[in-house]
């Protein structure tokens, strides 16, 4: 991407979400080396787009989101084996470098993504509207700050994550997702996951 575009994008983002303090970013090049060293791509895909069921794609995720999740793994506050083990010993700087690396990779759907089901896609769109997913995750579901990208994520991973939030088995840095998912049925989760994965 051209530097000019990046600057413009950064300016637009800052204008849209002006609250947060400026922070030192990680180093994407160091993060790439670290990801290779730790074979992250073995599960998450060489370019951060996962081809394995229940393993999320990381490419294009907001850096803050990746950092937050990696800290939760390292501190053994989020249970998703084998990640808590793999995160042990990583420094804050290494985690921020990994986050910068994956945030900079182009997002995209997995190669094994199935075809769109018009009915479920439509149901998912209506639910996403009613649940107002796009307010926090942004209207194109690319995420922001600690809030993850949903667009193009693996469908079965999204369904699993939403069920975990609903059932109180997963927490973010606050309880919003647990509240949003309260009482949402498995069928509704399936439709939402399909809709997001097909973005």
């Amino acid at each position: 991407m051209r530097p000019g575009f990046l600057l413009l994008a950064a300016a637009l983002l800052a204008a849209a979400f002006p609250f947060g303090p400026a922070r030192a970013a990680g180093d994407a090049a160091r993060g790439r080396a670290l990801a290779e060293e730790h074979s992250c791509g073995g599960c998450h895909g060489p370019q951060g787009v996962s081809g394995q069921p229940n393993i999320p794609s990381l490419a294009g995720q907001p850096a803050d989101f990746i950092t937050l999740q990696m800290i939760l793994f390292r501190e053994v506050l989020r249970d998703a084996p084998p990640m808590p083990d793999l995160a042990q010993g990583l420094s804050d700087q290494q985690i921020e470098d990994l986050a910068a690396h994956y945030a900079a990779l182009p997002s995209g759907p997995a190669e094994d993504r199935g075809p769109r089901d018009a009915g479920r896609f439509h149901d998912g769109a209506l639910l996403a509207e009613r649940l107002r997913c796009g307010i926090c995750h942004l209207p194109d579901y690319r995420g922001r700050m600690q809030i993850p990208r949903l667009a193009g994520q693996r469908e079965e991973y999204l369904a699993g994550a939403m069920a975990q939030y609903r059932d109180g088995r997963r927490h973010g840095s606050d309880t919003n997702m647990n509240a949003v998912m309260y009482g949402v049925t498995d069928a509704e989760i399936a439709a939402l996951a399909h809709y997001m994965a097909q973005q």
């Binding site: 009613r130 649940l131 107002r132 997913c133 307010i135 926090c136 606050d174 309880t175 919003n176 997702m177 647990n178 509240a179 949003v180 309260y182 009482g183 949402v184 049925t185 509704e188």
Partner: peptide
């Protein structure tokens, strides 16, 4: 923070007629 309570969108959730079926 967080007087975090309020999930964005929860009003919508609670208002969903579909939720009523989950007795």
């Amino acid at each position: 923070m967080m007087r975090t309570c309020l999930a964005l969108g929860l009003t919508a959730v609670l208002a969903l007629p579909a939720m009523a079926q989950q007795a």
